[in-house]
Every structure is written in C-alpha cells, then in structure tokens.
C-alpha cells in the first residue's frame, strides 16, 4: 500500500491505496465520487474524463500514485455553491444527454475544449475536438449544439480560458 495526497474538488484528501490503483478507482471507490464513469478501460470513450491541474485527462488510465500533489476537479465539483456551470446548463437545455452515462466525461471534455479553443466554436471544430468521447445514445447532434451554446455562455459569464490567458 502507498499513500497519495491530492486536492479533489477543493478538498484535501489522503488515501492509502494499492500501487496499481487507478485515479478513477480512487475517485469512485475511496472517495465515493461516482459521477466519473468507466466505459472502456482503454482511453477510448472518455466517460472517465476529469480535470487534472486544469486539463482534461482520462482517469481510467492514470495511476493514482502518479498524480500525488495534484488538483483534481470532477463533475461533482463543477457547479459552484449549487449554481450549475454554464456547460451543465447547456447540456440540459439542448437535450445533450439521454442515459447520462457519458455525460460527466462529455461535460468535462467540453469545458476543457473551451479552455483550449475559445468561446466561439463552430460545428466542425466541436466534432473534431470531441473524438476522444463516445456517446451511444444521442448521435452527437444535440451534444454539438450544447457545447456551442455552453461555450458561448461561458464567454458571457467571463470564465477565463487557457487560450485567453496565453
């Protein structure tokens, strides 16, 4: 067993884990943050996307011990004081989800996409950038609409993006 300490959704946490423990297992099993899902085990589907030090990563292929000291945001940490993040609102408004299983990863990937590519995202850009996330229910039609609207709303809410910061 080994000790790993990190900040998850603003809280400092320490866990004693088997060295082969993946970040997603730490989140789901030790911290009971079950919003992050496992859909494929091979980094293909993106259901497990979380933000690691502000950047999207696939937590199903990240060893927990490798992120000691890092800051992690999961879907549970996206809303602030009960106020939904604009991207969460956009997914609901545009029916960007059906079964909900891929949704946390989609939303976390979408927020990261806005950070990297700005608030004005056309359809081709969104479809191209979303190639690391699979949804089996929606045919992506409404996810694309939701991300475009969410990106714009993030701009109005003046959410700083990495692109702007650079």
């Amino acid at each position: 067993m080994a000790t790993v300490s990190l900040t998850v959704n603003g809280k400092a946490v320490t866990a004693n884990v088997d060295p082969r423990t993946l970040l997603v297992q730490l989140l789901r099993e030790n911290l009971r943050l079950t919003g992050t899902h496992v859909g494929c085990d091979t980094s293909q589907c993106g259901a497990c996307v979380v933000h690691l030090d502000g950047k999207a990563v696939k937590s199903c292929t990240t060893l927990a011990l490798s992120v000691d000291g890092a800051t992690v945001t999961t879907i549970e940490g996206l809303a602030v004081n009960g106020v939904l993040h604009p991207m969460q609102e956009a997914f609901r408004e545009h029916h960007g989800l059906q079964c909900g299983y891929c949704t946390p990863g989609m939303i976390m990937a979408a927020v990261d996409m806005v950070s990297r590519r700005g608030h004005s995202l056309d359809e081709a850009t969104i479809r191209d950038d979303l190639d690391g996330n699979i949804c089996r229910c929606t045919g992506y039609h409404n996810i694309v609409k939701a991300i475009a609207a969410g990106a714009e709303a993030m701009g109005k809410a003046a959410t700083p993006t990495r692109k702007a910061a650079e």
Binding site: R28, G35, I75, E93, T103
Partner: peptide, 21 residues
C-alpha cells in the same frame, strides 16, 4: 419540456448499478 431527470446526470449524481455499494 426539458428533462426532469437531467439534473442528477449533469451533476454526477446519477445512481447506476456500479455506484451501489
């Protein structure tokens, strides 16, 4: 009508079988 069930899914509060312990 926007979906009643969405709030739990977009906030990570869905309860799937593997979430049950």
């Amino acid at each position: 009508v926007r979906r009643k069930e969405d709030h739990r899914f977009i906030t990570g509060q869905g309860r799937y079988t593997d979430d049950i312990n």
